[in-house]
Simulated scan of single mutants.
Amino acid sequence: MSDAQSPNLPSTPESGATNTPATAEVVSGARIIAVTSGKGGVGKTFVSANLAAALTRRGQRVLVLDADLGLANLDVVLNLHPKVTLHDVFTGKATVEEAIVRAPGGFSVLLAGSGMVEYSRLTPEVRNQFLSVIQSLAPQYDVVLLDTGAGISDVVLFSVSLASEVLLVATPEPTSLTDAYAAIKVLAMQQKRQHVRLVINQAARPGDGRAITGQLQQVLDRFVSAQAGRPLRLIHMGDIPADPYVREAVMRRQLLLLQTPGCPAALAMAQLAGKIESTLLSPAA
């Protein structure tokens, strides 16, 4: 975040009207949320998996789709060894239903194969196949979480364009915030997003995430909103505190919410699920 910083933090809205890019309008059914990040290694897939478990506990029908088509790792986080992946669906070797597996935590997952170089570029064929999969699955669930790749590649941006909401994961490190700013700018300019929801992972102190959101908001107001000709608002959804139990769960390939549900990070994930349910999944949302 190289443009400007200020200690005077503007308030950020708790919720906002859904800003839906054109692509998302062709998908009906579940609320589709893209979980993305500007930088890799910030815990995006960890958030996707544990958020899915927390939403499932609240009675939601949840599907997590591994949308990182080139460098998929959701299977590693969940310690799953699928015989059928999204690659098999795309090549006609299996149906979508055959590729869906039940994850620890009770939610459904559709996994992509790692190292799929042919899917690292957004060709018309990949676009159509991916859209067809989403369209067929969305009516069967309350929530579809798209665990996208990091950054602003064509594949990532297309995955995000299928979602009505964007949940961007960042950490307090300057490199993560710089890349988060870049990703938000692209979403505002290319997809005409009017708001992006922000989760700060590995927060050192309570309140860090809200302060970071305010600082990013000031930079966006100055440089992005003016350029786009419309306001862009960050919505602070919560902080996941730095917690040694997170690393332990990741190393064991277990969901934090199942292994140590009472630890600070797990409680924060449960709070995030509650906030998403109340702001995005309630009948009035």
Rank of each mutant, 00 (worst) to 15 (best):
V96G: 01
N50F: 12
S37N: 12
L111I: 15
V199E: 03
A24P: 13
A182V: 03
D179V: 11
D154Q: 11
I200T: 12
L78E: 05
L281E: 00
N201R: 15
V84S: 06
Q135N: 08
R253I: 03
F46P: 01
Q190Y: 04
C263L: 01
L74A: 11
G40C: 05
S2C: 00
Q60D: 01
A183H: 12
N8T: 06
S136K: 15
L157F: 08
K83W: 02
A285H: 09
V144P: 07
V219G: 14
S225E: 03
Y181S: 00
V219A: 15
G40W: 11
V224S: 05
E97V: 04
N50C: 10
A4R: 15
R31G: 00
L131P: 09
H81D: 01
K192E: 01
G209A: 05
L131T: 13
V133P: 10
V156Q: 00
T85E: 02
L146Y: 02
Q140L: 03
P21M: 07
P10V: 02
L234V: 03
E248T: 10
P261F: 07
T91L: 07
L168I: 15
G92F: 10
A30I: 02
P264S: 02
G105M: 09
L51A: 11
Y245T: 14
E165A: 06
V186T: 14
I100D: 01
S164K: 15
G40M: 04
M1E: 02
R247T: 08
N128Y: 05
P264C: 02
A112P: 10
R252V: 00
P82C: 02
M116C: 11
P231M: 01
S176Y: 09
K93P: 11
T45H: 11
L146K: 03
E14G: 14
S225Y: 09
M269K: 09
A112F: 08
N79H: 12
N50P: 11
C263V: 04
R205V: 00
R222G: 07
A67V: 14
V35K: 12
L74W: 11
E118K: 14
M1S: 10
V96W: 04
Q194M: 04
V166C: 10
A228G: 08
K185T: 05
G209N: 10
G43C: 08
L257G: 06
Y245H: 15
A22K: 14
R205S: 00
G105Y: 12
K83L: 01
R230Y: 07
V144Q: 07
G209T: 09
T12I: 03
S37V: 06
K93T: 12
T45E: 04
V27K: 09
V143H: 08
V186D: 03
V219M: 14
Y245V: 04
R205L: 00
V84Q: 07
V117K: 14
G59A: 09
F46S: 00
A17C: 04
P231W: 06
V224Q: 07
T95Y: 09
N73C: 07
F107C: 00
A103V: 01
V117T: 14
V246K: 13
G106Q: 07
L51Q: 12
V64P: 11
L267Y: 05
V84R: 11
L71I: 03
T20F: 06
A30H: 09
G209H: 13
D179H: 15
M269S: 04
G214C: 05
R253G: 02
N201Q: 15
V133G: 10
D3S: 13
N19G: 12
Q217W: 05
V77T: 15
S120V: 08
Q254A: 10
T260L: 01
N50E: 03
S136C: 03
